[in-house]
Design a protein around this nucleic acid. Structure first.
Lengths: 342, 342
DNA sequence: CGGATCGGGTTAATCGTTTAATCGGATAAT
DNA sequence: ATTATCCGATTAAACGATTAACCCGATCCG
């Protein structure tokens, strides 16, 4: 029916050159204010939408960022994706997703796919322990402050400290930490922080669900009853997902939470506030992290000279870490009667 | 350092025209097999990557699909996004995400953003009750089979029937259905199916958490104890998220699950198998749904003449629904003693 | 033996936008 | 009056890939 409006169409209807139209729309060249306004009005009226392909070809920039995730099925992903999509679209960028599907080569493939699509820069949440090779384009990394090349992330260590301190103040002297993977830097930092916050005198035990999976299958029991019998008064997990598992296992075994055992998580996943008892957890301001990461990345794209880089070549941001916030909910309370029995 | 390899560079090193190089790489024109092979080898060696902008400009296609979601923070999202990203990348397409942020105008904005970025087609998971206006490009909709214009989706009604039948077979005659929104077509279909599966003789009660939120706040109690006291032996929820809320509330109130009350969910969210007791739920094969949706959409993009459309103008797929699968886990069991007390 | 066919390339136009260089005329400075 | 300045707009050259049209020599066919 009607031809897709392009610059030439606009130029014809106003009897000016395409350059003038372009200038009017971008506000860059020299053009009389009235004409510029008329052209802009006309453009809006006929529903002109600039061709991203044409523009990308000319300017060398696509206006698209790549977001690489270790595994989309990770329940933390929605928070991150939402924060980044929002931050990016605010700055006029689109977000192309790439799923590493849990493997290292999947991560490289995802990165390559995004590069082939011409992204201007990339945000990578690396698979644990992965080093991302230079991609010839600005790259922001979101992992943990202690990761080399980290652009910005939650301060997981600090989060651990806060949680540990909180538990210590409640009188918990014998705590079980349930982690998932021993290779995750994020988790290692949280563990470190937890221990520090709990203090020297506290007795701390540590298990990895990853190890147990080999014996019992992924859905097996964690054998928490034994730990409680041995005097554990609090189970600090490194993820709400694990906390949920712990919580329901304890409740199912007849241990009251938090009266007998306190349970804490990390990340404030969506269900954490809806369950009974509500889960005490640490929340990171993902929107802020997304904002900082995108901002640093975009700056590095648009003004490469002004942008700082880490030694690893990734984009540098400041601040490079965002404090975590303790959310106290009913799943945690004072260390109780179990010490009496022990 | 080294110039970005483009077709002209390749053409120079082989002393042929760019057209020949293009043909060699695409395998389209007439060219001697050996020369084609040599060029392809050379291209790989120097790491040639075609400019997506140049190609898009010339061909009029970007190779990117838009994925519009009602709200990324929805925990069902990871499954869908993963399925679609995988299906799309298999067919050589990228996926640009657009978050409607829970509002109708947000949905339109997201769609427009994606259109401006030049997506070749769009996958929309519509916000409940929304009609998507014609966008001038192929559009696949994933909602529920009863939604006009639906391209493909899980057969939510059938899932409800299966779950209802299952509960009926266990002897549950008095069932509480906990839904979230009364405006969701997906949930309406599930409810319809559940009632049908439970049978005429069953006594069914229905509540919407959406309504309760106004009174008690989002995290308030659902008042399940009353229902159980009145003889409810099973609580069938329309989402694992709700099921989790129900399960923990019941356990916290001292009701044994499933001995006293059975609890079931929908969607098999990631934690459903990890909690205690494991959650009986209905799973949809999201990978299959993603595959079908992407396939139909891509077909409509690449061969518009062969592709069928619904009356709403959306892309038609066959099959247009995917059966849901019942996953029986320990959270459900035979109707028990509560009927005795009532 | 003359024309048609075919294989293996090349030429050149084109996609839509941006932008450096330029141009014509009016105005200001000398 | 001559030159410099400046404004408002135009011209034209890119950006990188695709593809219709064409070209030339060799082969085929009747």
């Amino acid at each position: 029916m009607k031809p897709k409006p392009k610059l030439t169409l606009l130029a014809e209807t106003f009897n000016v050159s395409v350059a003038t139209v372009s200038n009017a729309l971008s506000g860059k060249g020299r053009i009389s204010p009235e004409l510029a306004q008329r052209i802009r009005d006309g453009a809006r009226e006929i529903g002109y939408v600039p061709s991203s392909a044409g523009r990308a070809l000319r300017t060398g920039r696509s206006g698209v960022l790549g977001l690489v995730l270790p595994d989309i099925s990770n329940p933390l992903f929605p928070q991150i994706a939402q924060a980044i999509e929002q931050a990016a679209s605010t700055r006029g960028y689109g977000v192309l997703i790439g799923d590493a599907r849990g493997s290292t080569e999947g991560q490289s493939q995802a990165i390559n796919r995004l590069l082939e699509r011409g992204v201007d820069g990339m945000l990578v949440i690396p698979r644990r322990g992965t080093r991302v090779t230079d991609i010839g384009r600005p790259l922001a990394m979101i992992d943990s402050p202690s990761t080399p090349g980290n652009t910005v992330s939650a301060d997981h260590h600090d989060g651990g400290v806060k949680m540990g301190t909180y538990l210590a103040e409640l009188g918990h002297q014998h705590v079980l930490i349930v982690a998932m993977s021993s290779r995750s830097i994020v988790q290692a930092d949280r563990i470190e922080g937890l221990k520090q916050g709990l203090g020297e005198q506290a007795r701390v035990e540590l298990i990895f669900t990853e190890d147990l999976a080999e014996q019992d299958g992924a859905v097996g029991s964690l054998g928490l009853a034994d730990y409680v019998a041995r005097g554990v008064t609090a189970v600090a997990t490194l993820s709400d997902l694990t906390a949920l598992r712990v919580l329901t296992e304890l409740q199912g075994a007849g241990f009251s939470v938090p009266d007998r055992v306190s349970v804490t998580g990390f990340d404030d996943l969506i269900w954490s506030s809806a369950i009974t008892p509500g889960l005490t957890t640490m929340r990171a301001d993902m929107a802020e992290i997304g904002r900082i990461a995108v901002e640093a990345l975009v700056k590095s794209i648009e003004r490469p000279d002004q942008a700082e880089r880490t030694e690893s070549g990734t984009v540098k941001a400041s601040p490079d870490r965002v404090a975590m916030e303790l959310l106290v909910r009913p799943s945690s309370g004072k260390a109780g009667h179990s010490e009496v029995t022990s």
